[in-house]
Simulated assay, not measured.
Amino acid sequence: MPLDPKIADSAPNAPQLTPYDEQHAVTYMRLLDALADNADWREVARIVLGIDLTVDPDRGRRTFESHLARAKWAARQGFGISCSAVGRRVRNECVWKRAALLLVSDRKIRWSHHGIA
């Protein structure tokens, strides 16, 4: 598995984990970390996805949104499988990320019901 896999313009949207997802498990975890830290999407696109927003900000936004959506999906649906592919340390972190994401998602849902979103 490459240490720094190339980022596609759009993450997969298959109903199961793909080889791309397995190669980008660490990228997905970094995106979830950034979400939990309320990081600015531009900073995340630059640092995590390696996208130069001065060249193509629209591509950067689309790529960021696509990969964040896939990271959320993977955390809810299939990261347990993907984590086993990247080793014990990452697998343990992955379980934590999944729990953190569910907590963040739950808070956002509750906040949106209270008009805070």
Rank of each mutant, 00 (worst) to 15 (best):
M29K: 03
I47T: 14
F64M: 04
R91H: 11
M29F: 08
V104P: 03
S112H: 12
A45M: 04
D58F: 05
L68Q: 14
P2C: 05
V104S: 01
S66Q: 04
P12R: 04
R107K: 12
G87V: 13
A11W: 04
A25G: 07
A85T: 14
R70I: 08
V44I: 13
V48Q: 02
R62Q: 10
E22P: 00
M1C: 15
D58E: 15
E22D: 09
Q16V: 12
G50R: 04
G78T: 07
S105G: 02
W111I: 01
S66E: 04
D40P: 01
W96E: 08
W111C: 09
E93F: 07
N92I: 13
Y28G: 00
L68S: 12
R46A: 11
D9Q: 09
F64E: 01
E43I: 09
P12S: 09
L101G: 03
H67G: 05
A39I: 02
C94L: 07
A39E: 14
L3Q: 10
I109A: 14
A74I: 09
A8D: 15
H114F: 11
N92C: 02
H24V: 11
S105T: 06
S105F: 00
R91Q: 06
F79P: 01
A45P: 01
K72H: 08
L17P: 03
G50C: 07
H24A: 10
A69Q: 13
A14K: 03
A25K: 01
D4P: 06
L102P: 00
V48M: 05
L102Q: 08
T54R: 08
S10R: 12
A39G: 04
I109Q: 11
G50K: 02
A25V: 12
K6Y: 08
A25D: 02
A100T: 12
D106L: 09
D40I: 01
I47V: 14
R91D: 06
R98M: 10
E65W: 01
N38Q: 15
D21N: 11
R98V: 10
P19H: 02
D58V: 14
K6P: 11
Q16I: 10
R59K: 13
A34M: 04
A69N: 07
H114Q: 15
D58H: 11
I7V: 15
K97S: 07
D52G: 07
A117Q: 03
R30K: 15
L31G: 01
